[in-house]
């Protein structure tokens, strides 16, 4: 069987985590190519619909990552994001998409290495877990 290569959609905030991703690049921190960065202005603008869409379109995991508490450029968007992700955990968790597949992290602008580490860890764990919604091609 072909080795499973998961696809991870990462909604990263323009201010902190995107900078960290850039920093990971300039500091030559390699991370697996399984992640697709989607830059958003703030984690607070990540509509739960986007997360659901990502899973239904075939993502094996979704990462939402923004500024540390207190650092949000928009004062408190990350706190709002945290409640939304909690809601999504509550709903998607019932249908087999558990919290390992939907992660929320705070990765600050200087945490390039941390960013690479998070991606590494997540890819490794999702490889273990296997595809998210492989068996539902017909039913959605």
């Amino acid at each position: 069987m072909e080795r499973f290569e998961p696809t991870i959609i990462a909604f990263v905030c323009n201010w902190c985590t995107y900078t960290a991703a850039d920093l990971a690049g300039t500091s030559r921190q390699k991370y697996p190519p399984n992640v697709r960065l989607i830059r958003v202005m703030c984690t607070g603008m990540v509509d739960p619909k986007y997360v659901v869409k990502a899973f239904l379109s075939g993502a094996d995991a979704v990462l939402v990552s923004g500024c540390h508490p207190g650092d949000c450029h928009y004062i408190n968007g990350n706190y709002k994001a945290r409640r939304r992700v909690r809601l999504l955990h509550g709903i998607l968790g019932r249908f087999g998409i558990d919290r390992e597949r939907l992660r929320l992290t705070w990765i600050g602008a200087s945490d390039g290495i941390e960013f690479a580490k998070v991606i590494h860890t997540m890819v490794a764990e999702i490889k273990e877990l296997g595809p998210a919604v492989s068996d539902m091609k017909l039913v959605i």
Binding site: P48, L56, I91, L138, V139, I140
Partner: peptide
């Protein structure tokens, strides 16, 4: 995908409604 169930976005619709109205 090879196939596309029509109308599509059925599960999407219900999940979204759970997100919007579950609480």
């Amino acid at each position: 995908k090879g196939t596309l169930r029509m109308p599509m976005d059925t599960v999407f619709f219900h999940l979204t409604r759970m997100i919007h109205m579950g609480l």
